[in-house]
Amino acid sequence: MAHLSAMNAKPNSQYQNDNHYQFDTAGALLTTQLPLPRRSGKVRDVYDLGDRLLIVSTDRISAFDYILPSGIPEKGRLLTAMSEFWFNLLDVRHHLISSEVPSDLPSSIDTAPLVGRVMVTEKASVVPFECVVRGYLEGSGLREYNDTGEICGNKLPAGLKQCDRLPSPIFTPATKAEEGHDENVTIGRMIADVGSDLALDLRNRSLSIYAAACQHAESKGILIADTKFEFGMVGDEVVLIDEVLTPDSSRFWAADTYQPGQAQPSFDKQFVREWLSSCGWDKQSDPPMLPAEIIKKTSAKYIDAYQRISGHSFA
């Protein structure tokens, strides 16, 4: 969960479009406040429509457990388009009903800012674990491997380098923390919490979805280094929920520049993390505004990933 002080703080240079939307001066949609029951995550505002959910992807961006005061214009539309692409491509039971703005919203709402950034979904009982699959050695997995020779109980060969491709993809679940960082755990911990049948089923589903996604992405010149899935239950059915295989939930690398032994140029928000780590911010206080150039380059990376993977232009 993003740091609460950052979540509650009003970003700088923000102006009101109307009572339902807040944009920053770059045109990024930071907050929606529709007259419906609402809860918010780092990026999405989720509204209860009774028998369905309305999930609105804003242009917020988070890093180091803070929601940043600058948004990335059109990021929410891009994340929605990317998730919709994968939901349509993958042969998997998912929660998406429609990406059209519902026609039965209260008449007081100007729906124009919602176009392209909403998912109408089934309601599901969320499984309280992120289902992470790693095909390459990077991030927190690299740090754990360097310390212990394994990741979340998965023993790995000695001598692997940063960003090496793993002998086979591994399942490394994480708890969904209400405060602070999510915690990487073993499949044994997941079994203890949700039972062996569900835990092993989610592991198998996650590995299968990752394999199918990698096959498609590699045909487009993109490597999916790792990703995280979320699942819920609709009755007795396991359903893929939330976003899927976006630059916010995955590491995407260009296959033609891939070179293990070092960090890879990526299409995700690692670019923002690197700037924040180099700008002098202590990562304990409210984060700084992003420079216009960083915002522009981040947007370009997200768009590039979508267009390469989907084969569609983003407009």
Rank of each mutant, 00 (worst) to 15 (best):
L53V: 06
S83A: 08
K75L: 05
D51M: 12
A81C: 09
G71P: 06
I61G: 01
G50R: 11
R77Y: 09
D65R: 04
L53N: 10
S83C: 06
S62F: 04
S70M: 14
S62M: 01
I72S: 05
L78G: 08
G50I: 02
R52A: 15
L78I: 03
I72R: 07
L78H: 03
L53P: 03
S57R: 07
P69D: 06
E74Q: 13
M82R: 06
F64H: 14
I61Q: 06
F64K: 00
P73H: 10
R60F: 02
E74L: 13
S57K: 12
T80N: 15
D59W: 06
L79K: 01
K75Q: 11
R52N: 14
L68N: 03
I61W: 02
T80H: 07
S57H: 15
I67T: 15
S70T: 15
G50A: 10
P73Y: 04
Y66E: 06
R77G: 15
G50Y: 05
L68G: 00
I61V: 15
L68S: 04
P69R: 05
L78F: 12
E74R: 14
P73K: 08
I55H: 04
S70K: 07
G71C: 11
S62R: 06
I55W: 01
G76C: 05
I72F: 12
S62K: 03
S70L: 10
A81K: 12
D59G: 11
I61R: 05
I72Y: 09
S57Q: 13
D59E: 02
L79P: 00
D65N: 02
T58N: 08
F64W: 05
D59I: 08
R52E: 14
S62D: 01
G76H: 09
K75F: 02
G50E: 10
S57P: 10
I61N: 05
R60H: 08
M82S: 13
I72W: 12
L68M: 15
S83M: 05
I61H: 10
S70Y: 07
S57T: 13
I61Y: 07
I72V: 15
I67M: 13
T80V: 14
I61F: 07
D65W: 04
L79S: 00
L53K: 12
T80D: 14
A81D: 06
D65S: 01
V56F: 05
P69Q: 07
L54M: 04
S70W: 09
G71F: 12
